[in-house]
Design a protein around this nucleic acid. Structure first.
Lengths: 219, 219
DNA sequence: ATATAATTTTAGTTGTATCTAAATTCATAT
DNA sequence: ATATGAATTTAGATACAACTAAAATTATAT
């Protein structure tokens, strides 16, 4: 597996996860900041290797074999993110780009030893689950803040974007993974939210609310 | 800088270090397990970038700029080797191949934070000095065992090969970096050596002696 | 001094991953 | 039902880094 192939598999995996249907050529190109024709080329290659299911003009989806590989890359990426934050004291908005490179280092032994060194973490610094060696992914019942209503309460368990700008924005708001959040008021006009976290009132734009996951309290 | 360019620079740096004269195309090809024609191509490229000095048929040598880059790669390689051994408990014969990949990860911040995390080590697990951020290399007065004579005493400070076979051979002999070594007898017939280390007598072949560095006791 | 051998370079090819521009197929709107 | 536009694929080109085979240069040996 080349880094390019791995990156395509990872992207197709992620896009397929959110949409739950065949992934389009254009969406892959946009996500990877490349051209649709390049995507078609690579899809053919992955298809011939049996890593994705593909029919011309009908989009792609992961094969079992491709899924396994994608999960192993996601596992590596997230373990490295934990390492960078926990051991090297990177800020959570800095880890993504470096992990993008580290995830392509080829060594089973390395990643298993890293996993042990980190104490077998189950979530990365952005709240995303770390797939197990065998490819199992813990699924937490999480909901986008934008899908919540006035009065809902829960715990901030994940973000929908790992962009530097967004993560630094959360830092400014003093919002940290694990914070207890209560929705005080939802403005239907622009979908902005008034929330309470750590005893403080905060206003979130609709866009921000679409990038924050909470785990709603059980009844 | 691509990984390929970095690997060439590193190889030319190492070969230039031992010979102290222009490095030949063939020696680079042999070292990198590639063909001389491929080497010529890359040398031209590096030369155009001003990273090496090159005249057709006359071999190459490092430019100041190339030297700086080579040293930064060596620095990364050796810091990762320390990390793999100290933090992840790799054996010293396993670290080289993984470090070969990790050294190409591009992030100044990563390597500085790794350096701090490791406590600013000055030597790697094979006894080689780790270049400083600014490119300074601690030079230890070390001598090949094969160049020593009966009666010489010193400390085992480095190896001349990082091959798995050789390092595991040393493990079998129970010889560890830092061991005090005394040369009991040098057989001039085949250059084999009788040495004493940790109170035990050991016989070393001439070939083994050419891969072990000791720092001879000061008078 | 010159023939022979070794080394190095050149020329042309291959595989990977990208691109642009053009052609094809699909979706949709009247 | 067909025209229009969007999405996708194909065809052909480029850059990188390797290769083989042949040519050019340097080293060496008689």
């Amino acid at each position: 597996m080349t880094p390019a192939e791995e990156n395509y598999l990872k992207t197709i995996y992620h896009l397929g996860k959110v949409s739950n249907q065949a992934v389009t050529t254009n969406s892959i190109a946009e996500q990877m900041d490349t051209k649709p024709s390049s995507v078609t080329d690579m899809i053919k290659k992955l298809s011939e290797k049996g890593l994705v299911h593909y029919k011309k003009y009908q989009g792609v989806s992961m094969s079992d074999q491709g899924n396994k590989i994608a999960l192993s890359i996601v596992r590596k990426h997230r373990l490295w993110e934990v390492f960078l934050m926990e051991k090297l004291n990177f800020a959570w908005d800095e880890v993504h780009d470096v992990a993008e490179q580290l995830e392509h280092v080829q060594s089973e032994k390395l990643i298993e030893k890293l996993d042990r060194h980190l104490g077998f973490p189950r979530f990365d610094p952005h709240g995303d689950p770390i797939p197990s060696k065998s490819g199992k992914v813990l699924q937490v019942e999480k909901v986008l803040l934008s899908a919540c209503d006035t009065g809902d309460k829960g715990i901030f368990v994940g973000v929908n974007s790992s962009s530097t700008e967004f993560l630094q924005y959360l830092d400014k708001l003093n919002l940290v993974l694990g914070d207890r959040i209560e929705i005080l008021f939802k403005e239907s006009f622009d979908d902005s939210l008034q929330i309470k976290a750590k005893g403080q009132k905060v206003t979130l734009s609709g866009k921000a609310a679409m990038n924050i996951y909470i785990q709603i309290d059980e009844l």
